[in-house]
């Protein structure tokens, strides 16, 4: 490279063109006369004149045509290179080691992204399983809430059971007789009880006088219809045992009918009451 640098083209032109100098002069007659005569100052003038002479009257001599041919090749290469650099991607025309380096970088990047992807997938799986567990817990809690709701009277219940109809035309049935009936049903395993649209729960009470009975402060109209969900084979005999509820009520000149349909619906509801003092300890 250094050798090339020292022997620049101008020196080469300088060295060789000594013989072709006259040849050149024949091409440019107007510039000839002053150039050799005065060397120092008119030399610059001569350069300009030579440039003008070469540019303006277009002459198709050998030198011009050859130079035009080479410059055509140069322009072609220039245009191709500029276009391929500007329009195609940077990878085009890139050298092999650059391509290898780019490929390595892409591989690294891909690996990193794969790692990230698998990490995120793990995270997603964890979150999903934990949300599944939460869903399960929520379902169990809901089922438990329904069970407790039946006991507390906040949800309707349906199932096998008995319907007891007490007709008291003379108004002789006292509240404690109805309470006895409820106690008897509970003792026989009734899970949900209602009387004429009043849900019987743990805190229910009967009040009033014979013939004007209220349950939980609500006046009951005749006939008194008990609906109880439970095992009918237990509930029915419990009511009908000798000296039991049925006999006691019938003694008061009231009539008692006991049926055991396949499906008893207890749909009287009671608002859930939030206890004032007691709190869950669990």
């Amino acid at each position: 490279m250094t050798a090339n640098d020292t022997t620049e083209p101008e020196p080469r032109h300088d060295a060789k063109p000594v013989p072709p100098l006259p040849e050149q002069r024949t091409e440019e007659p107007p510039a000839e006369a002053p150039a050799p005569a005065a060397e120092a100052d008119p030399d610059a003038q001569a350069g300009r004149r030579r440039l003008k002479a070469a540019l303006w009257p277009p002459r198709a001599n050998r030198a011009q045509v050859i130079v035009a041919l080479l410059l055509f090749v140069l322009g072609l290469g220039l245009a191709i290179q500029v276009r391929s650099t500007s329009e195609s991607s940077a990878l085009r025309g890139a050298r092999q080691e650059d391509l290898v380096r780019i490929l390595d970088e892409l591989d690294d990047r891909k690996e990193r992204l794969q790692d990230e992807k698998s990490k995120l997938q793990d995270q997603r799986r964890d979150l999903k399983s934990s949300s599944d567990q939460e869903e399960e817990a929520r379902k169990q809690t809901e089922a438990r809430e329904r069970q407790l709701g039946i006991l507390a009277g906040t949800v309707a219940a349906t199932g096998p059971g008995v319907e007891v109809t007490v007709s008291d035309p003379v108004g002789a049935v006292k509240p404690d007789l109805l309470l006895d009936a409820v106690q008897e049903l509970r003792a026989a395993g009734a899970e949900a009880i209602q009387v004429n649209g009043v849900r019987i729960v743990a805190g229910s009470y009967f009040s009033g006088t014979a013939g004007k009975v209220s349950a939980d402060g609500k006046r009951l109209k005749q006939p008194y219809v008990f609906k109880a969900i439970g095992r009918p084979e237990d509930l029915e005999p419990a009511l009908k045992i000798p000296g039991g509820v049925v006999q006691t009520i019938e003694k008061e000149q009231a009539t008692v009918g006991v049926q055991a349909p396949d499906k008893v619906v207890v749909d009287a509801l009671r608002a859930a009451k939030r206890p004032d003092y007691a709190r869950s300890s669990s």
């Binding site: 063109p17 030579r50 070469a54």
Partner: peptide, 18 residues
């Protein structure tokens, strides 16, 4: 090309050399 242009301005341009 630049070398050739300079040679032309110097008056020593030769197409063969170029």
């Amino acid at each position: 090309v630049f070398g050739g242009l300079r040679a032309m301005l110097d008056g020593i341009f030769d197409d063969k050399v170029f």
